[in-house]
Nucleic acid binder design. Structure first.
Lengths: 136, 136
DNA sequence: GATATACTTCAAGCATGATTGAAGTGATTA
DNA sequence: TAATCACTTCAATCATGCTTGAAGTATATC
């Protein structure tokens, strides 16, 4: 826990469970192929083979990514009642809702505070354009 | 581009710019320390040294992560007008708004389509609980 | 039972990127 | 001008995890 002093009372800028949970979800989502898989699941595509056809990926790789998504609670698994060899994946709407809530809470524009001049001379600030950007 | 057939008209499930852009942002955000840095920036903390104090990180590492955030357009840089040795980082609200919009659009619950039985016998589905989970 | 199907798990190889210490840059002060 | 300060860049190490091919599992069919 880190405390930042406001006018007269401390505000907690937690290093915290909520942020950690969001970080864990983002790590799972920060994979282009997993996002594509989610995109297909959202569109109603559900079996390993068809996901592979659409994304041009080996079935074991699809299986791996689906496993990661499943461990994160984002997708669920079912087997076909007629022929149980077929496996269908679907979205976990509750987790998706929690994810949306966590993301929205963290990046809520109204949370943004003005600069606190804790270090530095006094904090009169130059426009960004005047900065010397080093080229290499 | 991938086309999925709905009732009577094709719906584009693009492999697409919007998803690619979101994936790029998520990759930048999927780093616990960067999320913590953003969290501090949101709380009004802005110079490298103080971020380092709060997060117990070396200044060069902070600098590295801030550089990644800056290249993603999420933060901006300014130098102090009184003493230009001090550098202040702040959030780019426009990019943050675009990020929120992209995330919200991708994970919009109303986008979720019901299963399309394209492969598999017919798609009568068993509850997830009946699945045999292999242990090792 | 033997074979086929749909998928999963395992055991590498490999690439990306976080981390670290040292050197470098720009600005200020003595 | 020399020294200091705040920060950045560089080079190298190291860890995480994606990817791939092979082997394994569960289910269904012959």
């Amino acid at each position: 826990m880190i405390e930042v002093i406001t006018q007269d009372r401390p505000v907690v800028v937690d290093a915290l469970p909520a942020t950690q949970q969001l970080a864990a979800w983002l790590k799972v989502l920060a994979e282009p192929r997993r996002l594509q898989i989610l995109n297909l699941l959202i569109a109603g595509v559900q079996c390993n083979c068809e996901l592979g056809d659409h994304l041009d990926m080996a079935p074991n790789l699809i299986s791996h990514h689906l496993s990661v998504l499943r461990k994160a609670g984002l997708v669920e698994v079912e087997r076909d009642a007629v022929d149980a060899r077929w496996v269908y994946y679907s979205l976990n709407r509750a987790t998706l809702a929690a994810l949306n809530a966590a993301f929205g809470a963290f990046f809520d524009p109204t949370r943004i505070q003005p600069r606190r001049a804790v270090c530095g001379p006094q904090g009169n600030v130059l426009p960004a354009a005047t900065i010397h950007v080093t080229k290499h």
